[in-house]
């Protein structure tokens, strides 16, 4: 059984800063990491592999440095990784990104059929949660988003049962394979990789595919192939506040209670 996990390298959001004067991002100090949701997707794929057997391949689009997150995935137990890297990919929005990834998936599938595709529910730099559904549409297979548990996988009957988070609880869904599953962090605990896995990962050289390797149409990617464009980037407006309470803690507490009490039913 072949499980493919689509992953993304993101700047550690906690450490991205913006220059308030120029509105440019200062990413120099922010280390690039494997998108945390994707890490859980890789872990889930590895967990499924350990239960049912099979192979886990990770696929990412990015600059050559993105090999690091492929290695990180191998530490978690993935078997192989492919980096889609080409100048033509740069500047792609979610629509174009899902195109490129689905072309990569098609190429991968031509070599080895894919039974299940996993993604993180969203990337922490964009937070759009759109690439997973985009891939499902392009491959014309089912999509299961916000999955918090994989209950069972039946590779013979070709179906999967998952728990999908909704506002008041969760849906238990049975879906046909192959399909795209995007996962929540709650789906599993990341396992601490063993030293031999670390060594294998550190020495791993992922395949790198460019535009031609995935038979992709250049017009569908990059800045020009992306339907959306960024007009401007700005700092959120500065807010001005209200009343600063003063006095002893008791005084302040009583003032606050007085003004808020009527709002509490």
């Amino acid at each position: 059984m072949h499980i493919v996990v689509c992953i993304k390298q993101v700047p550690d959001a906690a450490q991205v800063k913006i220059d308030p004067k120029t509105n440019t991002l200062d990413r120099s100090s922010a280390p690039a990491i494997l998108n945390p949701y994707d890490a859980h997707a890789v872990q889930e794929a590895v967990n499924i592999k350990r239960l049912y057997g099979g192979r886990v391949t990770v696929l990412t689009m990015g600059p050559p440095q993105a090999k690091d997150i492929i290695r990180k995935s191998l530490e978690l137990g993935a078997d192989a990784g492919i980096l889609l890297s080409d100048r033509a990919f740069a500047g792609s929005d979610t629509w174009a990104t899902s195109y490129i990834l689905s072309q990569g998936l098609s190429e991968l599938r031509a070599r080895e059929p894919i039974d299940l595709i996993l993604c993180g529910k969203q990337a922490i730099d964009g937070d759009t949660a759109q690439v997973g559904p985009g891939i499902a549409r392009r491959l014309n297979i089912g999509q299961l988003t916000y999955i918090q548990k994989v209950e069972s996988v039946d590779f013979v009957e070709r179906s999967i049962i998952v728990h999908r988070r909704v506002d008041q609880g969760y849906e238990v869904i049975q879906a046909k394979l192959p399909c795209v599953v995007t996962v929540e962090k709650e789906i599993n605990e990341l396992q601490y990789s063993s030293l031999p896995e670390m060594m294998r990962a550190a020495q791993y050289q992922p395949l790198v595919w460019g535009v031609n390797d995935i038979h992709a149409e250049v017009n569908n990617m990059g800045l020009n192939g992306s339907p959306t464009t960024v007009r401007k980037i700005f700092s959120p407006p500065e807010r001005t506040g209200g009343e600063r309470l003063t006095g002893s803690i008791d005084d302040m507490a009583n003032q606050l209670v007085n003004v808020l009490l009527e709002k509490i039913s």
Binding site: Y192, S193, L195, P196, M198
Partner: peptide
């Protein structure tokens, strides 16, 4: 090391 199978 602190990793499983972590002796070198």
């Amino acid at each position: 090391t602190n990793r499983p199978d972590g002796d070198v």
